[in-house]
Amino acid sequence: MARVTRPDWASLGLLAFVVAFFVFMLAPILVVVVVSFTSASYVAFPVPGWSLKWFWHIFEYEPFIDSLIVSFEVAVGATVLSCLIGIPACLFLARSRAGWASAVMTFLLSPLSMPMIVIGFAGLFFLSWVGIGISFTALLVTHTVVCLPYVVRTVAGVYRSVPRAYEEAAAILGANPLAVFRHVTLPLIRPGIMAGSLFSFLTSFDNLPVSYFFGSADTNTLPVVMLSYMEHQFDPSIAALSTLQLLLAVVALLVVDRLYGIDKMTVTG
């Protein structure tokens, strides 16, 4: 299927446009990575010299570390909780032909479409009324609302593409439903679970509009602390933290991609 495309002005123009587009997309990210290695005590670009001191500074500023731990716990907790309630729902919804099943699916995905600031604001007042106000539990529960759609969408997408025949064969051969799930279904949908969990984790970890409303000394997440830091100071420690966060995301993506081939899912899904 080799197609001969002669270079022409329209194609060259398009290529130039795409290159400019990616400069626009990558410039704000790359400058932050560069600034995080600066030796200066202020933010300037280009940087006057190189050092790792701003990475060390992160560990000296206690709120960063404390909130990093909170963020990590919330992200893991919300992801696990999303999987526990989301995967069973997918098992039914992805195979059901009932009319109400697609309505339920839409409902489970709908938190994606709601403004997060509204979910956070409304959640704070409601959960205070219920009695779990500003607490780790409240943070966990609200993050799960936001994370659940990522798990449901990815797992349901993968499960839909799995032919029924495997499960039917196992059932005919005498496996009970639990055994069919453990030995047939689960291994088949594992890529979806991994990818969905990754999106869920990253979404929670980066969430600011929801976490903001549940902020206290014990429940401030990393983005909340970074925002308040940025509102008062402008120094390269934010750059260093951002670079670390990006590194974490890239490593996680590469690992999941290496194990399960994530690109196929994100683009077609």
Binding site: L30, V32, D206, A239, S242
Partner: peptide, 12 residues
């Protein structure tokens, strides 16, 4: 990348 990182990038 986090929303904070990109915003910081624009500031830089």
């Amino acid at each position: 990348t986090s929303i904070i990182m990109r915003t910081f990038g624009w500031q830089v």
